[in-house]
Write a protein that binds this DNA or RNA. Structure first.
Lengths: 113, 113
DNA sequence: TTGACATGAAACCGATAGGTGTCCTATACT
DNA sequence: AGTATAGGACACCTATCGGTTTCATGTCAA
Protein backbone atom coordinates (compact mmCIF):
# COMPACT_ATOMS: atom_id res chain seq x y z
CA UNK A 1 0.00 0.00 0.00
CA UNK A 2 2.97 2.28 0.32
CA UNK A 3 3.65 2.57 -3.38
CA UNK A 4 1.52 2.68 -6.48
CA UNK A 5 3.97 1.93 -9.26
CA UNK A 6 1.44 1.06 -11.98
CA UNK A 7 3.21 -1.82 -13.71
CA UNK A 8 4.31 -5.23 -12.60
CA UNK A 9 7.83 -4.22 -11.69
CA UNK A 10 8.59 -3.02 -8.21
CA UNK A 11 11.58 -1.17 -6.82
CA UNK A 12 13.30 -4.31 -5.62
CA UNK A 13 13.25 -5.87 -9.04
CA UNK A 14 14.11 -2.61 -10.74
CA UNK A 15 17.35 -2.10 -8.87
CA UNK A 16 18.35 -5.75 -9.09
CA UNK A 17 19.95 -5.20 -12.47
CA UNK A 18 23.41 -3.55 -12.53
CA UNK A 19 22.72 -1.72 -15.77
CA UNK A 20 19.62 -0.17 -14.31
CA UNK A 21 21.53 0.92 -11.23
CA UNK A 22 24.03 2.56 -13.56
CA UNK A 23 21.22 4.34 -15.35
CA UNK A 24 19.94 5.73 -12.09
CA UNK A 25 23.39 6.93 -11.20
CA UNK A 26 23.66 8.67 -14.55
CA UNK A 27 20.41 10.49 -14.00
CA UNK A 28 21.36 11.74 -10.58
CA UNK A 29 22.28 15.25 -11.56
CA UNK A 30 20.72 15.63 -15.00
CA UNK A 31 17.68 14.80 -16.96
CA UNK A 32 18.74 12.93 -20.13
CA UNK A 33 17.34 11.80 -23.47
CA UNK A 34 17.50 8.14 -24.38
CA UNK A 35 20.30 8.53 -26.89
CA UNK A 36 22.62 10.15 -24.41
CA UNK A 37 21.84 7.54 -21.80
CA UNK A 38 22.38 4.63 -24.14
CA UNK A 39 25.64 6.19 -25.24
CA UNK A 40 27.03 5.23 -21.86
CA UNK A 41 26.39 1.53 -22.34
CA UNK A 42 27.75 -1.14 -24.64
CA UNK A 43 24.27 -2.45 -25.34
CA UNK A 44 21.76 -1.32 -27.92
CA UNK A 45 19.55 1.69 -27.56
CA UNK A 46 16.50 -0.57 -27.62
CA UNK A 47 17.82 -2.53 -24.68
CA UNK A 48 18.42 0.64 -22.70
CA UNK A 49 14.95 1.76 -23.62
CA UNK A 50 13.52 -1.37 -22.08
CA UNK A 51 15.47 -0.82 -18.91
CA UNK A 52 14.07 2.68 -18.80
CA UNK A 53 10.58 1.34 -19.06
CA UNK A 54 11.15 -1.00 -16.15
CA UNK A 55 12.55 1.85 -14.09
CA UNK A 56 9.55 3.89 -15.09
CA UNK A 57 7.15 1.16 -14.04
CA UNK A 58 8.83 1.13 -10.67
CA UNK A 59 8.40 4.88 -10.49
CA UNK A 60 12.14 5.48 -10.36
CA UNK A 61 12.19 7.67 -13.45
CA UNK A 62 9.71 9.88 -15.21
CA UNK A 63 9.73 10.79 -18.87
CA UNK A 64 8.98 14.06 -20.57
CA UNK A 65 8.85 14.67 -24.27
CA UNK A 66 10.85 17.59 -25.58
CA UNK A 67 10.66 17.91 -29.32
CA UNK A 68 11.57 14.60 -30.81
CA UNK A 69 13.40 13.37 -27.77
CA UNK A 70 12.23 11.87 -24.52
CA UNK A 71 14.07 13.04 -21.45
CA UNK A 72 14.25 10.81 -18.44
CA UNK A 73 14.54 12.11 -14.93
CA UNK A 74 15.33 10.38 -11.66
CA UNK A 75 12.59 10.02 -9.06
CA UNK A 76 13.88 9.11 -5.65
CA UNK A 77 10.54 8.78 -3.97
CA UNK A 78 10.14 5.02 -4.54
CA UNK A 79 13.46 4.47 -2.83
CA UNK A 80 11.62 5.26 0.36
CA UNK A 81 10.09 1.85 0.25
CA UNK A 82 13.52 0.31 0.09
CA UNK A 83 14.67 2.52 2.88
CA UNK A 84 11.78 1.46 5.07
CA UNK A 85 12.44 -2.16 4.32
CA UNK A 86 16.07 -1.73 5.25
CA UNK A 87 15.20 0.17 8.35
CA UNK A 88 13.41 -2.88 9.63
CA UNK A 89 16.70 -4.77 9.72
CA UNK A 90 18.85 -1.92 10.86
CA UNK A 91 18.13 -2.48 14.51
CA UNK A 92 19.84 -5.78 13.99
CA UNK A 93 23.25 -4.54 13.14
CA UNK A 94 23.21 -1.45 15.28
CA UNK A 95 24.79 -3.29 18.16
CA UNK A 96 27.24 -5.49 16.34
CA UNK A 97 28.45 -2.97 13.79
CA UNK A 98 30.99 -0.39 14.79
CA UNK A 99 34.54 -0.60 13.53
CA UNK A 100 33.47 -2.66 10.57
CA UNK A 101 30.76 -0.23 9.74
CA UNK A 102 33.17 2.68 9.47
CA UNK A 103 35.22 0.58 7.16
CA UNK A 104 32.37 -0.20 4.85
CA UNK A 105 31.20 3.36 4.86
CA UNK A 106 34.56 4.77 3.95
CA UNK A 107 34.80 2.09 1.30
CA UNK A 108 31.58 3.28 -0.27
CA UNK A 109 33.12 6.63 -1.09
CA UNK A 110 35.40 5.24 -3.75
CA UNK A 111 32.82 2.80 -4.95
CA UNK A 112 31.61 3.25 -8.51
CA UNK A 113 29.41 0.47 -9.67
CA UNK B 1 35.28 -4.63 -3.12
CA UNK B 2 33.00 -4.04 -0.21
CA UNK B 3 31.54 -7.51 -0.14
CA UNK B 4 32.86 -10.98 -0.87
CA UNK B 5 29.70 -13.03 -1.35
CA UNK B 6 31.32 -16.05 -2.99
CA UNK B 7 28.64 -16.99 -5.53
CA UNK B 8 27.18 -15.21 -8.50
CA UNK B 9 24.22 -13.76 -6.66
CA UNK B 10 24.53 -10.38 -5.02
CA UNK B 11 22.38 -8.68 -2.42
CA UNK B 12 20.37 -6.72 -4.95
CA UNK B 13 19.32 -9.83 -6.79
CA UNK B 14 18.78 -11.77 -3.60
CA UNK B 15 16.21 -9.37 -2.21
CA UNK B 16 14.48 -8.88 -5.54
CA UNK B 17 12.30 -11.91 -4.96
CA UNK B 18 9.32 -11.50 -2.59
CA UNK B 19 9.62 -15.03 -1.27
CA UNK B 20 13.23 -14.45 -0.33
CA UNK B 21 12.32 -11.24 1.45
CA UNK B 22 9.73 -13.21 3.40
CA UNK B 23 12.35 -15.77 4.33
CA UNK B 24 14.60 -13.05 5.67
CA UNK B 25 11.76 -11.67 7.70
CA UNK B 26 11.09 -15.11 9.13
CA UNK B 27 14.67 -15.48 10.22
CA UNK B 28 14.81 -12.15 11.97
CA UNK B 29 14.38 -13.43 15.46
CA UNK B 30 15.18 -17.10 15.16
CA UNK B 31 17.46 -19.51 13.49
CA UNK B 32 15.36 -22.10 11.63
CA UNK B 33 15.71 -25.46 9.90
CA UNK B 34 14.59 -25.79 6.31
CA UNK B 35 11.47 -27.73 7.14
CA UNK B 36 10.13 -25.07 9.44
CA UNK B 37 10.94 -22.34 6.97
CA UNK B 38 9.28 -24.09 4.09
CA UNK B 39 6.25 -24.70 6.25
CA UNK B 40 5.51 -21.01 5.90
CA UNK B 41 5.26 -21.12 2.13
CA UNK B 42 2.90 -22.69 -0.37
CA UNK B 43 5.80 -23.91 -2.49
CA UNK B 44 7.82 -27.10 -2.18
CA UNK B 45 10.61 -27.59 0.31
CA UNK B 46 13.08 -27.95 -2.53
CA UNK B 47 12.09 -24.60 -3.94
CA UNK B 48 12.59 -22.96 -0.57
CA UNK B 49 15.92 -24.69 -0.33
CA UNK B 50 17.00 -23.08 -3.57
CA UNK B 51 15.98 -19.68 -2.32
CA UNK B 52 18.04 -20.32 0.77
CA UNK B 53 21.05 -21.10 -1.34
CA UNK B 54 20.71 -17.85 -3.21
CA UNK B 55 20.40 -15.96 0.04
CA UNK B 56 23.43 -17.81 1.26
CA UNK B 57 25.43 -16.90 -1.82
CA UNK B 58 24.58 -13.29 -1.17
CA UNK B 59 25.78 -13.72 2.39
CA UNK B 60 22.37 -12.93 3.82
CA UNK B 61 22.05 -16.21 5.67
CA UNK B 62 24.47 -18.73 7.10
CA UNK B 63 23.81 -22.40 7.63
CA UNK B 64 24.79 -24.65 10.47
CA UNK B 65 24.21 -28.36 10.66
CA UNK B 66 22.58 -29.66 13.81
CA UNK B 67 22.04 -33.37 13.71
CA UNK B 68 20.11 -34.17 10.58
CA UNK B 69 18.82 -30.68 10.10
CA UNK B 70 20.37 -27.52 8.69
CA UNK B 71 19.55 -24.36 10.54
CA UNK B 72 19.59 -21.08 8.71
CA UNK B 73 20.37 -17.81 10.37
CA UNK B 74 20.02 -14.22 9.17
CA UNK B 75 23.16 -12.21 8.43
CA UNK B 76 22.50 -8.51 8.16
CA UNK B 77 26.00 -7.50 7.25
CA UNK B 78 25.51 -7.62 3.46
CA UNK B 79 22.62 -5.21 3.83
CA UNK B 80 25.24 -2.59 4.49
CA UNK B 81 26.01 -2.53 0.82
CA UNK B 82 22.39 -1.78 0.09
CA UNK B 83 22.37 0.85 2.75
CA UNK B 84 25.40 2.54 1.28
CA UNK B 85 23.88 2.44 -2.15
CA UNK B 86 20.73 4.03 -0.83
CA UNK B 87 22.65 6.59 1.12
CA UNK B 88 24.03 7.92 -2.13
CA UNK B 89 20.54 8.93 -3.20
CA UNK B 90 19.30 10.05 0.15
CA UNK B 91 20.73 13.51 -0.15
CA UNK B 92 18.34 13.87 -3.04
CA UNK B 93 15.15 13.52 -1.20
CA UNK B 94 16.22 15.15 2.02
CA UNK B 95 14.96 18.52 0.96
CA UNK B 96 11.78 17.59 -0.85
CA UNK B 97 10.60 14.99 1.59
CA UNK B 98 8.91 16.07 4.77
CA UNK B 99 5.21 15.58 5.22
CA UNK B 100 5.18 12.78 2.72
CA UNK B 101 8.06 11.09 4.41
CA UNK B 102 6.26 10.94 7.74
CA UNK B 103 3.37 9.40 5.92
CA UNK B 104 5.43 6.67 4.34
CA UNK B 105 7.22 5.99 7.56
CA UNK B 106 4.08 5.55 9.56
CA UNK B 107 2.79 3.37 6.77
CA UNK B 108 5.77 1.07 7.11
CA UNK B 109 4.72 0.10 10.61
CA UNK B 110 1.72 -1.86 9.45
CA UNK B 111 3.51 -3.22 6.45
CA UNK B 112 3.88 -6.97 6.29
CA UNK B 113 5.27 -8.13 3.02
C1' DT C 1 19.42 -52.86 11.76
C1' DT C 2 15.55 -51.21 9.96
C1' DG C 3 12.73 -47.62 8.99
C1' DA C 4 11.35 -42.79 9.14
C1' DC C 5 12.85 -38.08 8.73
C1' DA C 6 15.73 -33.85 7.00
C1' DT C 7 17.99 -32.22 3.35
C1' DG C 8 20.78 -31.72 -0.73
C1' DA C 9 21.37 -32.97 -5.79
C1' DA C 10 19.82 -33.60 -10.33
C1' DA C 11 16.89 -33.59 -14.33
C1' DC C 12 13.34 -31.30 -16.22
C1' DC C 13 9.82 -27.48 -17.53
C1' DG C 14 7.36 -23.11 -18.69
C1' DA C 15 7.80 -18.25 -18.18
C1' DT C 16 10.44 -14.27 -17.97
C1' DA C 17 14.72 -11.36 -18.54
C1' DG C 18 18.04 -9.25 -21.19
C1' DG C 19 19.60 -8.82 -25.43
C1' DT C 20 19.28 -8.27 -30.68
C1' DG C 21 17.56 -6.38 -35.32
C1' DT C 22 13.88 -4.36 -38.12
C1' DC C 23 10.21 -1.31 -38.82
C1' DC C 24 7.17 2.80 -38.05
C1' DT C 25 6.13 7.42 -36.67
C1' DA C 26 6.99 12.04 -35.24
C1' DT C 27 9.87 15.86 -35.20
C1' DA C 28 13.69 18.73 -36.98
C1' DC C 29 16.79 20.55 -40.60
C1' DT C 30 17.64 22.73 -45.13
C1' DA D 1 9.21 18.62 -50.00
C1' DG D 2 12.61 15.57 -48.71
C1' DT D 3 15.96 13.63 -45.67
C1' DA D 4 17.96 12.66 -41.19
C1' DT D 5 17.28 11.91 -36.31
C1' DA D 6 14.96 10.25 -31.85
C1' DG D 7 12.71 6.84 -29.95
C1' DG D 8 8.91 3.51 -29.33
C1' DA D 9 6.87 -1.18 -31.05
C1' DC D 10 7.42 -5.70 -32.47
C1' DA D 11 9.32 -10.28 -33.42
C1' DC D 12 12.77 -13.16 -32.15
C1' DC D 13 16.66 -15.73 -29.49
C1' DT D 14 19.09 -17.70 -25.45
C1' DA D 15 19.95 -18.00 -20.67
C1' DT D 16 18.23 -17.84 -16.27
C1' DC D 17 14.50 -18.17 -12.74
C1' DG D 18 11.21 -20.20 -9.97
C1' DG D 19 9.05 -24.10 -9.68
C1' DT D 20 8.33 -29.34 -9.82
C1' DT D 21 9.44 -34.43 -9.10
C1' DT D 22 12.58 -38.05 -8.19
C1' DC D 23 16.63 -39.92 -6.14
C1' DA D 24 20.52 -40.30 -2.80
C1' DT D 25 22.55 -39.61 1.65
C1' DG D 26 23.00 -38.93 6.45
C1' DT D 27 20.94 -39.06 10.99
C1' DC D 28 17.73 -40.31 14.61
C1' DA D 29 14.59 -43.68 16.90
C1' DA D 30 12.90 -48.57 17.85
Amino acid sequence: MSALPSGKHDVFQAIADPTRREVLKLLVDQEMPVNVISGHFPISRTAVSKHLRILSEAGLVTERKVGRETRYKLETQPLQELRNWLHYYERYWENKMSALQRLVESDSKKEDE
